[in-house]
Amino acid sequence: MDLPVFRAALDDWLDEHDAELRGEHAAGGSLDDHMDQLSHVKRTAYDAGWMRWGWPEHVGGLGGSSLLRAYLGEALTSRDLVEPGIYSMTEVLVPTMIDYASPELAALMVPRMLRGDETWCQGFSEPDAGSNLASLACRAVRSDDGWRVTGQKVWTSLAQYAQRCVLLVRTGTTESAHRGITALFVDMDTPGITVRPIETMHGAPEFCEVFFDDVVVPFDRMLGDEGQGWAAAMDLLPFERSTALWHRAAYLHRRLELLLDAAPAGSLDPARVGEVTQLLYAFRLRSRATQYRMASGGQLGAETSIDKVLLATVEQAVFDLAEDALADQIVLGDDDAAERWRSEFLYSRAATIYGGSAEIQRNIIARRLLDLGSDR
C-alpha cells in the first residue's frame, strides 16, 4: 500500500472509530491512564491491521514502507489519542529487536509489543556511568542455567509497567570497554528484579531505578552475540533520536495550534510566534528527511543527533511561549486544561536531557560529523 492511499484510508477509519479509540482513558490523565489508553489504541489499531503496516512480515507485520507506520504515529498523536513519549517506545525498541534478536524470538515478541499486549523498557543508563555509556558496570556472568545479572540501572522509562527489558550488561574484561558489553532481552518478572519508580517534577513516575540481584537470563535471550551489545546500542540510539521524534513533532504542532486559540488577545508577540513556528517547521522538515532516508534503505547514525537538538529546542520554545501567554492558568489554574499545560511545561524542561542531553548531542555532532576532534 502506498502512502497516499494509506493516509486516506487511515484518516477515514480514525474518523469512524474516534469514540471507540478514546475509550475510558482519554489522553491527558495520569500516567496509568496514558498507559491504559496506549494499550487500548494499539490493540484496536493492530486488530484492524493498521499497527502492522510498515513492519516486516516475518515479525507479524504486513510489510510496506516505514513511512506508513510514521504516518500512523503522526495521526494518533495529532488527534490526541496517545501520548507521544510512551508511544515512541515501539519505534525505539522494535527495530533493534528485529535486527539483533534471533528470528524465532523476534517473531514471538514483536507482535506483542505492536498490539499493546506488552510494554518494553530500555536498561541502559546507570547512576555511576554518567554520559559515558561504555563505562556501565551492571555485570552478567555465565552459569550452567544462563547469564546471572547483578547491578543497577536508572532513568529506565516505564519499567514499572514493562514485561521485558532491553538490557546492556558487561560480560567481558577486554581492554576495549565497548567490546565487553552484551545486550540481553530480560523478562521483568524474573526473580531478583526490583523496580523503584522515580517521580519527576511534572508529577508522573515515568522513570525508575531497576536493581538486578543474581537474575538468571537464558543464553537464547541475547540480542546478537556475546560482546555485541555496543553495536546493538548504536543501532538503537539513532531510532531514539530520530524516527521516534516524528510523532512528537505532530504533537507539538497540535499544541501550538491550541495555544494560539487559547491565548488571550494581545498576550502573544507576533514576532515571537513567528520564531517558534519557524523552529517547529525546521524540525519537522529535518525529521521528514530522516523518515524518507530510512524508508529508502539509508542507515541512521550520528546525524540523528541533529534531529534531537532541534526537537529539544522547539519543544522548550513552544512551552515557553505557552508559559508567557497562559501564565495565570499554568501557575494558578486548577481545571484539567490548566493542569495539562502546567504538566507539559514542566516536562519540556527535560527535553534537553532525555534521550541523550543536548551537550552530548552537540559533542557527537562536533566530533563525528564536523571532525572537530575530541572534547578532552
Rank of each mutant, 00 (worst) to 15 (best):
P4L: 08
P4N: 09
W13N: 02
D18A: 15
D18V: 02
G23L: 10
E24V: 08
H25Y: 13
L31Q: 14
D32Y: 08
M35S: 05
D36R: 15
W50R: 06
R52W: 03
P56G: 02
V59N: 04
G60F: 09
S66F: 00
S66V: 10
L67H: 01
L72R: 00
L72F: 01
L72A: 07
L72Y: 05
G73S: 07
L76G: 02
T77D: 08
S78R: 12
D80A: 12
G85F: 14
S88F: 03
S88A: 15
M89L: 11
M89I: 11
M89R: 12
M89Q: 13
V92P: 00
L93P: 00
V94S: 06
P95C: 07
M97C: 06
Y100F: 15
E104T: 14
A106Q: 09
A107L: 04
P111A: 03
R112P: 06
M113T: 12
R115N: 13
D117M: 00
E118N: 08
T119V: 15
W120S: 14
G123K: 10
G123P: 05
A129Q: 12
N132E: 14
C138E: 09
V141E: 15
D144W: 01
G146L: 08
G146V: 13
W147G: 08
V154H: 06
L158V: 10
Y161R: 13
L167P: 03
V169L: 10
R179E: 15
G180T: 04
V186K: 10
M188Y: 09
D189P: 01
R196S: 15
T200K: 07
M201C: 09
M201N: 10
H202F: 13
E206C: 05
F212V: 11
M222Q: 15
G224K: 12
G229R: 11
A231I: 01
D235W: 02
D235T: 08
R248L: 14
Y251G: 01
L259A: 06
L260W: 04
A262T: 01
P264N: 02
A265T: 11
S267I: 02
G274L: 10
Q278S: 10
F283M: 06
R286A: 11
T290W: 00
Q291W: 02
M294S: 09
L300T: 03
A302M: 10
E303K: 03
V309M: 11
A312M: 08
A312N: 03
V314W: 08
Q316I: 10
A317F: 04
A317H: 02
V318A: 06
L321C: 04
A322C: 07
D324G: 13
A325H: 05
Q329K: 05
A337P: 02
E339W: 04
W341H: 05
R342K: 09
R342D: 06
F345A: 07
L346R: 11
R349N: 08
R349I: 03
Y354L: 06
G356V: 02
E359S: 13
A366K: 12
L372T: 01
S374T: 14
S374V: 12
D375Q: 13
